[in-house]
Design a protein around this nucleic acid. Structure first.
Length: 706
DNA sequence: GAGCACTGC
C-alpha cells in the first residue's frame, strides 16, 4: 500500500468509546485485562490509543500475536490507519522477517519472537507496554509469557505496563492471577447467532452433517455454509457426498452450489479459493477443519454446522508418547465456531449434539497447550533466563502443567547435558536455548560441531523442523504415467540420513523447485527448510568461537557410513534411545519408563541379512496411532550408547528439580524403583549384538562394492 | 504396512 494514499477514515469501533476508561485503568494499574469480542477493534486500536496518549515516549509498544499472518496484517492495517509507511513508526517482526526501525513505536510480533527477544534482554526493558493479544487461545508461548509478565511487573513495577487481551478468556481467572487487576469489557460487533441442537448425538456425523447441509440449501435464504469436520479424510468424503446429493436435487429447485474443502495440508492455491466471493445465485459449502475456527476467516458465512469434535495432538509425559485423538470441543470452541456465522449478518448454527452435552460434558475451555505438550524446550528456555530464585516446579503458570510433565522435561534435559545433576543449566544448555530448535536437535548441532559434521547436522535439523512429508519409497508406483524419481534411501542407516541425502541432492540442483515436485516433495516445505538452515547457520556462527563449516554439499566421501553424524545424533537424542528385543524387531525405549515400540512402517531403516534391525536406534518422536511407533529413526553404535546408560544410572529427579537434596536413604523406595534405569545390556545380548553387527558390516561392505 | 488437527522460534 503506497504511503502517499490518504489514510482511510478511522473506523468507528466499540473500543473508541472506551478510550478514557482504558487509559485511566492503564494509568493506575500495571496489568489490565481487556475482554473484547470479535470486531471490538482491540487488536488494531489498543496500541494506537496508548500511542496517542503518550505511552510510547518511554519506548515502543509490543503487541504479540499467536500467528505470523496476523502480525503482518494487523500491523499493515494500523500503519494504514495512521498514514505511515509500514516499517517506520509501525512495524512487525516475525521469524525470518523484521520490518521495524529505530523509529518504530508500535511493533506487532509473534509471541515466539518476543520470547526470543527476552533471551538477550530478560526484562524486555526496551518496551514501555506489552500487549498479549488473543490470550484466550492459550498457546504454549502465550502461557509462558503470562508467567513471565507476572514476574516482570514485580521487578519493573515502576514503568512496565501489561495488557492481556482476549475474546473469551475467563477474565476473573486472569485478574486473580495478576493479583486482582481490573478487567474491562468491550462489546464486539458480532450479529446474533441462533443455535439449534440435535436431540441426540448422531451415530454417523458425516451423514448427519450432510442432511443438515441439504436441508439448509433447500429451505434457507442465500448465505454460505461452513461445516466443521475433524480431518482431511472426513472432509474429502463429505465433499464428494455433498456434491453427489446436490446433483441429485431436482433441477431448478435450489440455487447453484459450490463445495470447497479447506484444511491445512491443502496446497495454498486451493486454500485461497475460499476467499473468492461466491458466484451470483450460488451458495458455497465450505467443509473445513479447525483452520476455519481462528486462523482463516471466510467471508459470507451465515450458517455453521458443528460436529462438536476436533482432532488434537496430546503428549503423555509418563510414556513420552504423542497421540492424535478426536476429542470433544470445549464450550469456548463451540461458541467460537458459532460466531463464524454472525460476522456479516444474523446467522444460524446447527450443533450436532444435544444441549445437555454442551452444558454438562463439554469442558468450559480447551485444555491449554502447555498441558498437552512436551515441555523440554520451554523449561530450558526458562532456565536460561537466569531468573532469581526460580524453581521450575513452582513457576507461576496460569494453569500449571503437571508435576509429571515438568519432571519429564528435566529428565530429558539432563540426559542431553542441558542441565547438570542439580538441575542447573550448563554451558551447553545455554547455547541450546539460543537455537530455535527442539532441544534434541540443538544438542545434535553442538555435538556435530565438535565432531566436524556440522554442515550435515544443520541440513538434518532444518529439514526435520520443516516437517517434510515423504512419499513412501517402498510402495510401488501403480501404473502412473508421470515419471517419478526415486528418493535417496538413507543407505540403510535410517531416516535422518535419508533426509540429509535429500537436502544435499536438492542443494546440488541449486534449490530447483522442479526437483522437489519431481520427487513429490512440497516446494513450500523444502524452501522453509532452506530458510531455517540459513537462520541456524547465522546463529551458530555467532555463537561458535572457532571456524565452522556450514556449507551443504554431498558429504558422504569422507565418512561413507555417516558415523560422525550418527554419533552426534546419538548424543543429541540421548533422551530418545531404544534397544531392540533379542528375538524380534520390536524395541523398548531406554530411560525412565520403558515402552514397547515399533519401527514406523514409513521408515527407511534397513534390517541386516538376517532380517534384524540394529540393536540400538535413536528416534525423533514416539507416536501412538494404531500402535506405538518410533518415527524418524537413526541406527547408532552400541559403544556410543554407554555414556547415556551411565547418565541414566545417576539420574535423580529430586535433585534435578532443585528439591531438597535429601540423602538417598530417606527417599521413598517407590521412587527409587521408578527411577532405576533398565539394566544395561546383558552379556548374551551383547554377544548376539556384536555378531549381528559384524554380519551387518560385511553385508554393507558387499552392498557398497556392488 | 500406515494414514497427519493447528500453530511457532
Amino acid at each position: 500500500m503506497p504511503s502517499q494514499s490518504p489514510p482511510p477514515a478511522p473506523p468507528v469501533l466499540p473500543i473508541s468509546e472506551h478510550e478514557d476508561e482504558i487509559v485511566a485503568a492503564v494509568d493506575a494499574h500495571p496489568v489490565v485485562v481487556v475482554i473484547g469480542e470479535t470486531g471490538s477493534g482491540k487488536s488494531t486500536q489498543l496500541s494506537q490509543i496508548l500511542h496517542r496518549r503518550g505511552y510510547t515516549r518511554r519506548g515502543p509498544i509490543a503487541v504479540t500475536q499467536p500467528r505470523r499472518v496476523a502480525a503482518v496484517s494487523v500491523s499493515r492495517r494500523v500503519a494504514q490507519e495512521l498514514g505511515v509507511p509500514l516499517g517506520d513508526e509501525v512495524g512487525y517482526a516475525i521469524r525470518f522477517e523484521d520490518r521495524t526501525s529505530e523509529r518504530t513505536c508500535i511493533k506487532y510480533l509473534t509471541d515466539g519472537v518476543l520470547l526470543r527477544e527476552s533471551l538477550s534482554n530478560p526484562e524486555l526493558k526496551q518496551y514501555s507496554v506489552i500487549i498479549l493479544d488473543e490470550a484466550h487461545e492459550r498457546s504454549l508461548n502465550t502461557d509462558i509469557l503470562l508467567g513471565l509478565m507476572k514476574r516482570l511487573i514485580k521487578d519493573r513495577a515502576s514503568d512496565l505496563k501489561v495488557l492481556i487481551t482476549s475474546a473469551t478468556l475467563d477474565g476473573l481467572k486472569v485478574s486473580k492471577f495478576f493479583s486482582g487487576c481490573p478487567v474491562l469489557n468491550i462489546p464486539g460487533t458480532l450479529f446474533p447467532v441462533e443455535k439449534f441442537y440435535s436431540t441426540e448425538r448422531p451415530t454417523n456425523y458425516i451423514e448427519s452433517s450432510l442432511r443438515t447441509a441439504i436441508d439448509i440449501h433447500a429451505k434457507e435464504p442465500p448465505g454460505d455454509v461452513l461445516i466443521f469436520m475433524t480431518g482431511k479424510d472426513d472432509i474429502d468424503k463429505m465433499v464428494s457426498k455433498l456434491e453427489e446429493r446436490i446433483q441429485n436435487l431436482e433441477e431448478g429447485s435450489c440455487m447453484d452450489a459450490l463445495v470447497l474443502p479447506l484444511h491445512g495440508s491443502l496446497p495454498p492455491e486451493l486454500q485461497v479459493r475460499v476467499f473468492a466471493p461466491a458466484p451470483p445465485n450460488c451458495r458455497r459449502f465450505i467443509v473445513a477443519t479447525n483452520v476455519a475456527e481462528t486462523s482463516l476467516t471466510v467471508d459470507g458465512v451465515v450458517f455453521v454446522i458443528d460436529c462438536g469434535y476436533v482432532k488434537q495432538r496430546q503428549y503423555n509425559p509418563s510414556s513420552g508418547m504423542y497421540s492424535l485423538d478426536v476429542v470433544q470441543i470445549s464450550r469456548v470452541q463451540a461458541d467460537q465456531r458459532a460466531g463464524r456465522a454472525g460476522r456479516t449478518r444474523p446467522g444460524k448454527c446447527y450443533r450436532l449434539y444435544p444441549m445437555s452435552i454442551y452444558e454438562k460434558e463439554f469442558l468450559e475451555a480447551t485444555v491449554p497447550e502447555i498441558q498437552r505438550s512436551s515441555l523440554a524446550g520451554s523449561v530450558l528456555y526458562l532456565k536460561s533466563l537466569n531468573l532469581p530464585d526460580i524453581n521450575i516446579l513452582k513457576f507461576d503458570f496460569l494453569d500449571p502443567p503437571s508435576r509429571e510433565s515438568l519432571e519429564d522435561a528435566l529428565r530429558q534435559l539432563y540426559l542431553i547435558d542441558a542441565i547438570d545433576e542439580n538441575g542447573h543449566i550448563t554451558d551447553v544448555g545455554r547455547i541450546m536455548a539460543e537455537l530455535p530448535l527442539e532441544p534434541s536437535l540443538s544438542r545434535t548441532l553442538i555435538e556435530a560441531n565438535e565432531l566436524g559434521c556440522l554442515s550435515q547436522a544443520l541440513s538434518v535439523a532444518a529439514i526435520l523442523s520443516a516437517e517434510i512429508t515423504l512419499r513412501s519409497t517402498r510402495s510401488k508406483d501403480v501404473g502412473g504415467k508421470r515419471k517419478r524419481h526415486e528418493l535417496p534411501d538413507g543407505s540403510g542407516w535410517g531416516d535422518h540420513v535419508q533426509l540429509l541425502q535429500i537436502f544435499e541432492s536438492w542443494d546440488q540442483t541449486g534449490y530447483d523447485p522442479k526437483w522437489c515436485s519431481d520427487h513429490d516433495l512440497q516446494v513450500r516445505g523444502m524452501k522453509l527448510s532452506k530458510d531455517v538452515r540459513n537462520q541456524l547457520c547465522q546463529i551458530i556462527q555467532k555463537i561458535a568461537k572457532g571456524p565452522t563449516d556450514v556449507h551443504a554439499r554431498k558429504s558422504r566421501k569422507n565418512d561413507p557410513d555417516y558415523r560422525k553424524l550418527r554419533r552426534a545424533l546419538c548424543v543429541g537424542y540421548g533422551n530418545q534411545l531404544a534397544e531392540r528385543m533379542l528375538h524380534h524387531n520390536g524395541y523398548h525405549t531406554v530411560g525412565y519408563r520403558a515402552q514397547l515400540v515399533q519401527v514406523h512402517p514409513s521408515s527407511v531403516l534397513e534390517a541386516d541379512e538376517y532380517g534384524k534391525f540394529p540393536m540400538y536406534v535413536v528416534y525423533h518422536e514416539l507416536i501412538s496411532t494404531t500402535r506405538p511407533y518410533m518415527r524418524n529413526i537413526c541406527a547408532v553404535d552400541q559403544a556410543w550408547v554407554e555414556p547415556i546408560l551411565k547418565k541414566l544410572e545417576k539420574l535423580d529427579v529430586n535433585r534435578l528439580s532443585g528439591g531438597s537434596s535429601a540423602p538417598k536413604d530417606s527417599e521413598p523406595l517407590e521412587d527409587k524403583q521408578v527411577n532405576a534405569p533398565k539394566k544395561a545390556v546383558d552379556v548374551k545380548q551383547s554377544e548376539v549384538d556384536s555378531k549381528i553387527q559384524a554380519a551387518r558390516e560385511r553385508y554393507l561392505a558387499r552392498k557398497g562394492k556392488k
